[in-house]
Design a protein around this nucleic acid. Structure first.
Lengths: 208, 208
DNA sequence: AATAACATACCGACCGTATGGTATGGAACT
DNA sequence: AGTTCCATACCATACGGTCGGTATGTTATT
């Protein structure tokens, strides 16, 4: 790839490759378990390049979380689950999509920012905040459909759209942990099924 | 505390203190982020004591997971949620208990084996297996009540007691991650509330 | 249009320290 | 007397991070 220009400084070859390496390796070994040199080797760059692009290892962690937020936002924005006219169907289609994504190697379907937040929540506030922004930002992207579905079905509830959106993320994060502990992605799919059943019950049972 | 004897070699003072230090510090900083020396300092022992009791750092991880399984098993066995005569009430009381436990500093209510499994699932199979045993063993302790509740209410379902028991653990693990990311334990309680509502719906709606 | 001046991207050797782990000796209990 | 338990001293290495240097751009001046 060509050298980055002043107009697009983010296009640096090494920088992107380091972020992609971070995305994959940190999901396998965790943040503290991933050395800068391991990242450099995977990205095919030297340490000089690393510290040219990131002031510290923590700064790489923040950048990786932001990169994760950007790429996943793009993935979900372009996903087919927005198609249904009924907002509830969109929410359920979202869960189908999340379920369909689960598969292959563990590090390929688990969540970078969930992994990092779990690990560094107490030792690195900057990384933690970047992770929180990614998780809760994504949750917010579901809120609109949930709110619309509640209005659409005339749901009067003691729960909020915001809390349900956050709960979906909690279930997914927890599902990943069981999958990691057991080495079996079915363990994650199982929880998504329960979550889908819950939301289905909330809206078919709660109708008034 | 007295010196350990040959008859109860597991009662070693230093050993227990190291396991307790591991329980607390690993929940704060993760496994890789916790140094042997940090554990020794917290336990008030030297490295000689550490490597006398544990052959390697990984062995400490396995022992910490087992210690966690033992102590939490004892905690839950002695908890008051077993009192209700109705098995469904016992399941719901279990969730109330889990919810009530959430509070204080993050490391005080989050799960050691969930944290470790997340981090070392790929790099240390022995620790991962010990964590899995703790998580799924605890899940199994719920299965009996769920099964009894299903029979009791005549539930014919497309889900199993085993999968629902595992799902409860997934929700709790995920709830902890959101709490860590946000720094707010309410984020965890919120998900427990949703889980309780789900189980309630499953049994009141599914009655036939 | 040429060029001086500056900025960016990257390399790879190097440094100080922290780390997991070892070797050895001795006190306390059996 | 023998074994368990633990402290001290030490080691080799892996770690995060620095630094001098080079190649390749961009911008401003003339």
């Amino acid at each position: 790839m060509a050298r980055p220009t002043l107009e697009s400084p983010e296009r640096g070859d090494a920088r992107t490759r380091l972020l992609e390496a971070a995305r994959d390796i940190i999901r396998q070994r965790g943040f503290a378990g991933t050395s800068v040199e391991a990242l450099c080797e995977a990205a095919g760059v030297t340490k000089g390049a690393f510290f040219h692009h990131f002031k510290t290892k923590d700064a790489l962690g923040v950048a990786a979380a932001n990169y994760w937020a950007e790429t996943t936002n793009a993935l979900f924005a372009g996903a087919p689950y927005h198609a249904p006219a009924d907002p509830l169907d969109r929410v359920l289609a979202y869960l189908d999509f999340r379920r369909a994504i689960i598969g292959g190697e563990t590090f390929e379907y688990t969540c970078l920012v969930g992994t990092m937040a779990q690990e560094i929540h107490d030792s690195s506030p900057t990384i933690r905040d970047a992770c929180a922004k990614s998780i809760f930002g994504h949750a917010e992207s579901l809120e609109a459909d949930i709110t619309a579905a509640m209005k659409n079905r005339g749901i009067s509830s003691d729960w909020t759209a915001k809390s349900l959106a956050r709960h979906t993320q909690a279930v997914l994060q927890g599902a990943f942990i069981l999958a990691k502990a057991s080495g079996d992605p079915d363990m994650a799919r199982e929880s998504v099924d329960h979550l889908k059943r819950y939301i289905d019950l909330l809206f078919t049972q709660g109708e008034k």
